[in-house]
Design a protein around this nucleic acid. Structure first.
Lengths: 183, 183
DNA sequence: TTAATTACGCTACTTCCGGTAGCGTAATCG
DNA sequence: CGATTACGCTACCGGAAGTAGCGTAATTAA
């Protein structure tokens, strides 16, 4: 392949970080629908057309933000209980600290009526984590999917739709509940 | 008050049922965003302006559909375990049979950036059930809200966003999980 | 230096959708 | 019959996603 033989032409400016920050700020402040592409562009100090040169749609841009926030799945343990505990704490903390609950929930809802976005969301954001969990849990796919839906569903409903952070107690309660499934 | 002294003027046609059916069909088929007011109006054989005469917004219309589907909260028991069990089974069945998962999730997401809709949603759809549960569970408000968020979040994430029905097994697993919280 | 190439900003535009205005007409009550 | 309210219809407004095309900036290859 040898892809990095610096292509001819003007290189892309280093503005992804600014765009991601502006996007998440906008979503946090105005909600998913209220965070318009025009507004994001202005907030990032970038032309709207530039956004569309890099990401095919608003949903794709916000998904890219989420991928940027969460980064690679942290495989912290081979032990099932420890893995689940850490994963849930990690997910809740990430969502809360970055304030991406609304962004998350909005993208999911958009994806219902947008197959292209569903594809992006699935491959870029969900698949890596699913693979890690399914491998580590070593359970039937149905069981794993159920657990994932409980975790994601609960976190999103609380922090995305209700917009409130999740108390320590509640995170621990969620962990205890999920661990109970495997007993 | 004496409200029912038949007012002068042409009475409203009996078309709520048709509109609700057309709305839910549209949302089920095209997703929340894809179910446009024009489409709903055509599907129901009604003028779009008539929709806006009866419901102030798309979100309000869909909320009305949900209220119509769910009806009054069934207070089936004073026993905590029995109440939760029945409530979860009832909710899952209602959502599945009416195919209102996407509608539900869409309204919630819309409400994030629409205070008016949030108000409608809260008073007309959520409040009655919350009151029943909080009374019956007799727990701290935090505990009750946590349980509700787990139940609603899980059901919506599975049946609204993923769009898949929930298997018997999973409903029972959810019930077992929730009951475990109170031990 | 120059030509080719790619990225960016800008303005203007199209399309679609939620929601509104206003008119003519239909149905009901007194 | 008149007053009143509901409905259908057409036309429209405003906003937001996404696109087209131009001039210009930054880089590489010759």
């Amino acid at each position: 392949m040898q892809a990095s033989t610096s292509p001819a032409g003007r290189p892309r400016s280093d503005l992804n970080a600014d765009v991601f920050a502006a996007t998440l700020r906008s979503v946090h402040e105005f909600g998913y629908a209220g965070a318009t592409m025009d507004r994001i562009a202005v907030a990032a100090g970038v032309a709207k057309t530039t956004l569309y040169r890099r990401w095919p749609s608003k949903g794709a841009l916000i998904t890219a933000c989420l991928v940027d926030v969460f980064g690679p799945a942290p495989v912290v343990s081979e032990d099932r209980e420890e893995l689940l505990t850490t994963a849930i704490r990690w997910g809740a903390a990430k969502i809360a600290e970055a304030g991406v609950g609304a962004a998350f929930a909005g993208v999911f809802t958009d994806a219902v009526s947008d197959p292209g976005l569903r594809e992006i969301l699935s491959t870029e954001l969900q698949a890596p984590y699913l693979r890690v969990l399914q491998y580590a849990l070593g359970e039937s796919e149905q069981r794993v999917r159920f657990v994932i839906d409980v975790i994601i569903g609960t976190l999103l409903h609380r922090m995305g739709i209700s917009g409130e952070p999740m108390a320590e107690d509640d995170v621990e309660a969620l962990i205890a509940m999920v661990l109970g499934v495997f007993r």
